[in-house]
Design a protein around this nucleic acid. Structure first.
Lengths: 147, 147
DNA sequence: AAAACTGCAACTACATTGGTTACAGTTAGG
DNA sequence: CCTAACTGTAACCAATGTAGTTGCAGTTTT
């Protein structure tokens, strides 16, 4: 458990690509190309984004994926929450001993602390939208080209 | 990678127990008892706390573990940083395609976002000390006893 | 009918974690 | 000086979750 999966990175990458396409759509193969990864992996992750109403998909020939909202209305936290499950911190694997003053009380208090730390992380993620990110990506690209 | 390990919870639990002992020491077996866990596991984690100068240990008969600082000078972030390694978010497993405008620029920008989110979490953890936590643990215990 | 898609189940390889056993080294006490 | 009670570590196991892949059924356009 050396941290969370790379699904957040993949999800945000895909959302940025879709935002770059404006209203247009992309296939899972096209997104997988940019990720140097696999279309099935992309569909798995985009499927979760669809469950969270961030994107929608159409089947069959000519099908693919599109944004379900404006890029400025999707935050990095939306992407994170859609693909990453549960809590960041793991709690005690066994309930601590009730015979110990610390053991029988620490559980709930630790929960409060961990939850507020996670909330701080989520709030920070919520401050950046896909539109913000795409703008910086394009600025970064122009910067690179001019050198 | 459904989050971090439970090492932070174990570390904080152990620090709270040591703080409760005031200047005294505890053996890894005593701490393991409260955790309903294993002395070796405890020594592994307390070893990291020692590397971070939060506790010290003495070997041999009558040995054990003690705090290396006052409880009010140890934050939950200190414990977290000592036992949890690396970053919370995983990055792209392969570097994205350089052929894609998004792919060749997103890496660094995502790093900035993820790092500032993690910093927010760490700052929140830094706001609570072991002394704070122990005080609440004891208050919680008295509360429970009075009913 | 064929081509180009999504959706999904199943499987592999791999890393990490929690847990355990075993044992060497250190120290205090009788 | 010998034994009991500790720490320190290495080695190993089972369980879990992830990334990656193959295969195939279903859907839609041409």
């Amino acid at each position: 458990m050396a941290g969370l999966s790379s699904r957040s990175a993949v999800a945000i990458h895909a959302l940025a690509m879709l935002a770059h396409r404006r209203g247009g759509s992309l296939t899972s193969a096209e997104i997988a190309d940019s990720l140097e990864s696999n279309p099935v992996l992309v569909r798995r992750i985009l499927g979760r984004l669809r469950d969270a109403d961030l994107v929608w998909s159409t089947e069959g020939r000519g099908g693919g994926w599109s944004l379900a909202r404006a890029p400025r209305d999707i935050t990095l936290h939306d992407a994170y929450a859609a693909v990453e499950e549960g809590q960041i911190f793991s709690r005690h694997t066994h309930p601590p001993s009730g015979a110990c003053e610390v053991g029988r009380n620490i559980g709930d208090l630790l929960d409060v602390e961990f939850q507020s730390a996670e909330r701080a992380l989520e709030e920070q993620l919520g401050r950046t939208t896909i539109a913000d990110l795409l703008q910086r990506i394009l600025a970064s690209d122009n910067e690179a080209k001019s050198h």
